[in-house]
């Protein structure tokens, strides 16, 4: 007796491939070229450059700081219990920064309440820059998801 599953498999294996209309690959390449040359792509490229530049600057500053203080850092780290103390220091530093951030926000709120509302162009410029950064980051995530 023939096995039914085998017959189904055989029939599907024998199905021919269909082809799209002629010039399909040219249309695909044209769509890719169009996408690459669009103003949005230029904007994304610029925003990516901005993000990459900022990241490089932060990395460079951090590396410089570590490089100039590496002896002190190494001396601190080889002491017993140094990691715990470093953690405590970092926590204290974070708490202090958080306190400062709250105070800064409070100050900004007070200033905003006292000062006139910024011009619409400033709002628009800030929104534009933020949207560009968010679009770039979300585009990268989407590319990873495919």
């Amino acid at each position: 007796m023939k096995n039914g599953s085998d017959n189904i498999a055989k029939a599907i294996r024998a199905l021919p491939y269909r082809g799209p209309r002629a010039g399909f690959s040219a249309r695909v390449m044209a769509a890719i070229a169009k996408e690459q040359s669009s103003p949005v792509a230029g904007l994304i490229g610029a925003a990516e450059l901005l993000v990459a530049g900022w990241s490089a600057l932060v990395a460079f500053a951090a590396a410089g700081l570590i490089g100039s203080n590496w002896t002190a850092i190494a001396a601190f780290l080889i002491q017993p219990g140094s990691f715990g103390r470093a953690l405590d220091l970092a926590s204290a530093r974070c708490a202090m920064l958080a306190g400062k951030a709250v105070a800064l926000l409070q100050l900004a709120a007070d200033l905003a309440a006292a000062a006139p509302v910024p011009a619409w162009q400033e709002f628009a410029a800030a929104a534009f820059v933020s949207a560009a950064v968010i679009y770039t980051l979300s585009g990268r995530l989407a590319a990873q998801r495919i």
Binding site: M1, K2, N3, G4, N7, I8, A11, A14, P16
Partner: peptide, 19 residues
């Protein structure tokens, strides 16, 4: 009996329709 229901070869049109 379902395994026996495909006892004969499935032609292209039929398997396309089934899919």
């Amino acid at each position: 009996a379902v395994d026996d229901t495909v006892g004969e070869a499935l032609d292209e049109a039929r398997i396309e329709a089934l899919l």
